[in-house]
Amino acid sequence: MTVEPARSALGHQLRHQLPLLVWLVLVWNLLWGTWSWANLLSGIVVALAVTLLLPLPPVVGGTHLHPVGLVVFLGYFFLDLVRSAALVAWQTIRPGGIGRSAIIRVQLRTDSDLLLTIVAESLTLVPGSVVIDMDRERRTLSIHVLHVRNLEDVERRRAAVLAEEERVVRAFGSADEIAALAHAPGEAPTGTGRRTP
């Protein structure tokens, strides 16, 4: 009687961690370099040991992959990567040196841990912007951006961050989250909006 909830909790945990398990088995096989049943079995054993001995908090929500959105996101991502790497490289070798940088704070619209993580990771991967801090409650990202000349540039970078967020949500988000994109950043539908100062 007391075993049953424990077992279902274990099953629940295992089901939540299934993507992690698959990823660990994949990494194990790639590290061995060759495909064989022995590698698969030992990989499963190692992955189970790792997930049971060193448990992680489960990812709330899960992903909903949209193929078209994913292609758009990846295409823009690699384009951004190449373009801004070339830009930063040019700034390092040009005689004038770099311009001024700025720290901007962007109010995001999505409210999912996973999506926020993907947004922050892809923003940091692109040279020219590094996420410094993240306020989970107010859903703001603080981003250090390189090479801004005036306030118009700042607004352009902010719009670029919001466009990146929209692409991420359209690639990985659920229907609710895509619908939430239509709301303005300040007036969140969940009511956890801004406090009055």
Binding site: V88, A89, I98, P127, H144
Partner: peptide, 21 residues
């Protein structure tokens, strides 16, 4: 860039460049 930039944050931009692309 690591040598020419002014502070840690801007040097960080130079550092993420080889690491990624």
């Amino acid at each position: 860039g690591l040598l020419r930039f002014h502070d840690v944050l801007t040097r960080m931009h130079a550092g993420t460049k080889p690491q990624v692309l």
